[in-house]
Design a protein around this nucleic acid. Structure first.
Lengths: 153, 153
DNA sequence: CGGTTAGTCTACTATATCCATAGACTTTAC
DNA sequence: GTAAAGTCTATGGATATAGTAGACTAACCG
């Protein structure tokens, strides 16, 4: 299960993606609109900024905006930044490998082998999905709900 | 990341699967061989028993043994028992669904849509892999390491 | 029966992580 | 130079993790 921090972070990134190419967004606005505790959100945005996913400007007219185009920011990297490695065990992580203490032999460990498949399955979804993809999904779902057929296959 | 409890549980189940059809296994033996703190292991085995994955016998000649055949026990259910739902967010869990508090509309939520894909990717691996499959993997890896070709495709 | 063996149950503790909040500080625009 | 906005440091309560201790219960064996 992902933490609230990560969920808030994803919502914030999505919000900023929606308002891309416009003015920097105030933390207060984001906090209000997405119902995220302001101080908590500050920390989250800062973390995302320090990891290159966001940029910011101080002072009047300042605020936060995406560090790259929505198409260039993967959901996987947002989650990695806030939650840590996607791998279910450290010994199969590509971004944060750590040797498995109790395991006798990594090469033959059955648990590791399965966990490797899980990691691949997870990253295959999350690293291939961008903020832009997420917005697309929302739009299509909305159109479908409104009864407007969507021919963009 | 899965907890130590879950990892210990998986190792214990695998150990018991290896010794299936033989005598019940003592907690002490399992604890020693897999290097799992005994008291912690007791609790884990009990949980697995209470969820039908294991059976036990008390007194002399007693111990733990699998509740079903290794082929019938999925890694997914072992993890669910010890770690909780496999879904990354409660609103996409099939076994422990819970409404997403902050989400305005589940049907159109982009995060939920992606997380649903992640859940499917995870369960597709874990629910289709049994303890027997894990043992097979170990055996094949071992054979390969020993240079013995494995023609069982 | 009675002792020994082995799982079961209840309770407790220490440490870490999660989810924040408070307040001082720094940078920027006007 | 002052108001606006992000940045940084510190702290706190709640919950989860990773164990430990000890009494209790059931089963077998002679």
């Amino acid at each position: 299960m992902i933490s609230k921090k990560t969920k808030y972070g994803l919502k914030a990134m999505l919000y900023l993606a929606r308002r891309n190419d416009r003015e920097p967004v105030l933390i207060s606005d984001l906090s209000r609109d997405e119902r995220i505790p302001k101080k908590f959100l500050e920390m989250i945005l800062l973390t995302l900024k320090n990891n290159g996913m966001l940029q910011s400007r101080k002072g009047k007219g300042g605020g936060y905006y995406l560090g790259k185009a929505p198409r260039e920011i993967s959901v996987g990297n947002v989650i990695r930044t806030l939650e840590g490695p996607l791998a279910p065990v450290p010994c199969v992580s590509e971004t944060a490998y750590a040797k498995c203490g109790e395991c006798l032999d990594e090469q033959t460990c059955g648990i590791r082998s399965v966990m490797k498949d899980v990691r691949d399955a997870i990253t295959n979804v999350l690293d291939k999905t961008s903020l832009a993809d997420m917005l697309d999904r929302e739009e299509r779902a909305l159109k479908q709900m409104l009864g407007t057929p969507d021919y963009n296959i």
